[in-house]
């Protein structure tokens, strides 16, 4: 789900899974499997040395940007490496596209506005400074947007700073207890399914042991403002997010009963999220259904988010283009 992962990772992960299923040494098997494919063989020769050196396969794949941190943790924890890798590979083949843009909408909007505007500023800085120096010397004042194109380099810096501030603000709000729920306003359905998907993935691994927080999160938790709680399972934050987002959907009694269970699998079974197949929880069906709902939620929210982002790009572009004319209009009106 990360934008930083390799776009064609599904093919490579599927190839690794294929080799692992054949119980061959991963490095040699990968090299022989991909011999006829120029794209995959490039990847095989890149991964093989690290795999031969004895580094665990999840770490090697993570370093090559083929796995996210969350997926690496799942792969390392799952007893059935091949099945887990298969699942990740098939999920990577049809990833929920555009999820980052929807979940971080303020940052997306800031980018949509700031990038075309910054491009204009830099273009002006390269070519059209004379007019602005002239109007400056004449003491002609322009409006607030006009001033942006008036001082292109400073404006580019300002826009960059604004972008950084919004990105940092988004990240900070997500880390603060209580406040972080504000970030669900623009895509509650997407956030709900993302949290549930992660819960299902942790539940199938029985990932219920408490984890130690890193120093920053631990410090925030001690102050009482952090979104993470010490000595809780790794899924604790996702559980609380999902509980918050389903507070109008589940009955209070059921919420209370499920919260009293210690392990996540029994909580999800009690809530009916996972069916049992011959007495065993059917995690595959639950995960597939959740992924379908996530795709559905994403395409629904993209209906609105896409035009909004396009409109913001257009506003940024046209706003700066019009502001270029502002000094000319002022000169004309002075004359």
């Amino acid at each position: 789900m990360s934008v930083f992962l390799h776009p064609h990772r599904a093919d490579i992960l599927a190839a690794v899974a294929l080799v692992a299923r054949a119980r061959e040494p991963l490095a040699d098997g990968l090299v022989s499997l991909t011999a006829g494919d120029p794209h995959l063989s490039r990847w095989a020769s890149r991964l093989a040395p690290a795999l031969r050196s004895g580094t665990p396969a999840p770490d090697v794949l993570r370093r090559a940007r083929l796995l996210s941190r969350h997926e690496t943790r799942i792969l390392a924890a799952d007893a059935d490496f091949v099945a887990a890798l298969d699942r990740i590979a098939s999920a990577a083949a049809s990833p929920p596209r555009g999820i980052w843009w929807v979940r971080h909408l303020p940052v997306s909007c800031a980018l949509a506005f700031a990038l075309p505007a910054t491009a204009w500023c830099l273009l002006l800085a390269a070519n059209g400074m004379d007019l602005h120096y002239a109007t400056d010397q004449l003491g002609i004042t322009v409006g607030s947007i006009g001033r942006l194109s008036h001082q292109p380099l400073a404006s580019a810096l300002l826009l960059g700073a604004m972008l950084l501030a919004i990105t940092a603000g988004d990240a900070a709000v997500r880390g603060v207890r209580g406040l972080r729920h504000l970030t669900h306003f623009w895509c509650p359905e997407v956030d709900r399914q993302v949290a549930l998907l992660r819960l299902i993935q942790h539940a199938r691994l029985g990932d219920d042991a408490p984890v130690r927080l890193d120093p920053l999160r631990s410090a925030l938790a001690r102050v009482g403002v952090g979104a993470w709680r010490p000595n809780q399972p790794v899924w604790d934050r996702d559980w609380r997010t999902w509980m918050f987002l389903t507070r109008w959907r589940l009955s209070p009694d059921l919420r209370k009963q499920s919260a009293q269970r210690r392990d996540l699998a029994s909580r999800l079974t009690l809530l009916g999220i996972v069916d049992s197949d011959r007495g065993r929880p059917d995690w595959d069906a639950a995960e597939t259904l959740c992924r379908e709902r996530l795709d559905d939620a994403l395409s629904s929210s993209y209906l609105l988010v896409r035009p909004v982002l396009l409109l913001t790009v257009w506003t940024g572009f046209m706003g700066m283009a019009m502001s270029v004319l502002a000094p000319l209009i002022r000169v004309a009106s002075y004359l």
Binding site: L105, S144, L158, T312
Partner: peptide, 24 residues
């Protein structure tokens, strides 16, 4: 500078508000 920054922030936050209102 302050009003320019406020204007830019507005341009960023108004679309987010629109999405929230339409969802509701």
């Amino acid at each position: 500078m302050k009003d320019t920054l406020a204007f830019l922030m507005l341009l960023t936050l108004v679309p987010v508000g629109v999405v929230c209102v339409v969802n509701a």
